[in-house]
Amino acid sequence: MITNKQTNKLRWAYMDHWRIDTPQGQLSQYTSVQRFDDFLKQVAALGFEAIETFDFHLGPLRELFGSLENARAFMQSRGIDRVLSLFHAVMYDERQSAPHVRATHDHIVNYAEYIMRSSQGLGVENFIVMPAGLYYDVEPVTDDKIRACAELWNRVGEMTQKYGVKTCCHHEFFCGIRTAEQLRKFYEWTDPRYVFFYCDTAQHVIAGVDPVDLYLKLADRCGGFHMKDTLHVDLTGDYRRKPDAEVMAPTTPRWFHEMGVPGGLVDFPALMAAMKDRGYEGWVGVEHDKADVGGGNYPESTALSAWYIQHVLKKIYA
């Protein structure tokens, strides 16, 4: 497993997409304390010290444990120190909640502050957001729309800082801000004090952007990582496909794989070398959404990622 020592510069977190096989079919591990306990133990056994999860799990955690403080204490008893990041799971809609539509910004900011208030007690450090809506909802992606998104996240980021939380932007391959040029503008127009970059390695590769190059350009404002691999670049415009670019894409039923998958396109060794060179310290997140597509399973993918960390990545930078 990933062994952690006080001298390590990096600590590893796991972004949770799991489903559990039960006699009732697949259920979320947030449906019972027993299932959540088994999930925590499996992740902790591999050496991960934190989880990242979706903000819609706050309610279930409160329900399972009575309070988020109790939930965190339970996690810690299993070897998971905190919920490092909350992924803000919002279905953007131009009518009420879309980053490129300034009229909806108050709503987005207010809802984000509600999440901040209602997540106290879990040790959250990052608020991860998709900084623009689905590409097909945003296009044409104009400078003014990118500026609007930047204005929004500056506001949100300044607010979350008051709660000790960094707002981190995470660019799905189907996000309205996806190309190298769009990313360059967005980060130029956001305030580095308040808006951070969250590097999802596979998402960028799929979108035709080199995550190593992007990290090097944004290293000073990198809030963290979702390290996952992919076997595909989107060459056919799946990113614009309606209604869904990810699950329904013709290119592949499964975009994301664990780090180290044979044929993977992400250059993790180069990224680790870059992180070492730039002196990145802190948490590194691991993810493999939809790992159960096509016969896979989350536990095995998580274990294989942990193997890759221990046997490949830590030899480069720990």
Partner: peptide, 9 residues
């Protein structure tokens, strides 16, 4: 993998 990871824990 789940059984193995739980045993590991």
């Amino acid at each position: 993998a789940t059984g193995m990871m739980l045993n590991s824990w």
